[in-house]
Structure formats: structure tokens, C-alpha cells
Amino acid sequence: MIHIEQIAPHLTWPIRYQVMYPEHDLDFVKIENDDEGIHFGLYYNQKLTGIVSVFNEGKVYQFRKLAILEEAQGLGLGKKLMEAVIEYCKLQKAENLWCNARANAKDFYKRLGFKETETVFFKDGYDFIIMDLDL
């Protein structure tokens, strides 16, 4: 069973840490403006299994730190969580949703309708590309 709901920022940190940056300490995964974002948690079989954080400036929304626990990857949970984020943004009358996608995940985002921009960069040991979706 899958359930997605808004969660407090601090609930995202352990999953961000475990999935994205286990080589760093927990403080590394905290976003400076976490308190200003909307955070979504995906519960799979009643366990918090996936998270994503959404921030906006006017009609432009950005999602950050999408992460699914390793043991649940490949089950379509990331897609379900992103579909919920896209729906949330549409309800907010957003015009655009974008992210800094890890280069190795760009095909995942393309399947959701995101398009690659020409902006690529290297940060924290990873190649990133900015991808966006017109809503």
C-alpha cells in the first residue's frame, strides 16, 4: 500500500542522508531554507520510504532531494511521488517545475515529461543537469 502526505522537514533528513550522501554527516543534507519548503513523504507498507522537497518563487517551483530507500527502488515509488508533486504544483497554478537532476537520473525525469536544459554542472562529486517541465 502507498500513501503520500506532507511531512515535516526533519523527517526528510535521514532518507536524504542514507540514499544521497551517506559519506557525509547528517547536517550535510539539510537545506538552508528547508523550513520554507513543502516536503512530501511516501509511505510504503506504512514505512516512510521516499521523500522530496518542493520550493517556489512565484509561479516557478523547484523540487529537491528526491530519494527512495534503496530496498524499495525499482518499484515505481519515485514515479508515484513525482506524479504527486506535479499534481500539487498544478493545483498551486505553477507554470514551471524544475530540478537539478543527477546526470545518471535524467532518463527517469524525461519519462515524466521533463526536458533537459543546456545547463550542466558538477557539485559534491556528481554531474548535474537542470531539467524542467512546463505545466
Rank of each mutant, 00 (worst) to 15 (best):
V19G: 01
G76V: 08
L42Y: 01
F55D: 00
H3K: 14
C89L: 01
A67N: 02
W98Y: 15
G125Y: 12
D134I: 14
I2G: 03
D134W: 10
L66Q: 01
L97P: 05
R16M: 05
G37W: 02
T12A: 11
F40V: 09
D34T: 08
F40W: 07
M131Q: 11
I4A: 02
N104R: 09
I38A: 06
E57V: 11
Y126C: 10
F28C: 05
F128S: 05
L42K: 06
S53Y: 02
D107Y: 15
L75K: 14
A94Q: 10
A8V: 14
L48S: 01
I130T: 14
Q46E: 15
A94E: 10
D127R: 08
L42Q: 04
W98C: 01
P9L: 11
D134T: 12
F128W: 05
N100R: 08
Q62R: 14
L26S: 12
Y44A: 10
D107Q: 15
K106M: 07
K59P: 00
N33R: 12
F40C: 09
H10V: 13
M1L: 13
E36C: 10
I7G: 06
V120S: 10
N96T: 07
E87H: 15
R16T: 04
E83Y: 04
K65V: 03
V19A: 06
D132C: 04
Q73M: 06
V54W: 03
K106T: 15
F122L: 09
K93P: 05
P9V: 07
L133N: 01
D35F: 15
L69N: 03
Y17P: 04
R64E: 03
I38C: 09
F63C: 02
K93W: 04
V54K: 00
G78M: 05
T117E: 06
Y17S: 11
G58Q: 02
I7D: 08
K123E: 15
E32T: 07
F28P: 08
M82K: 04
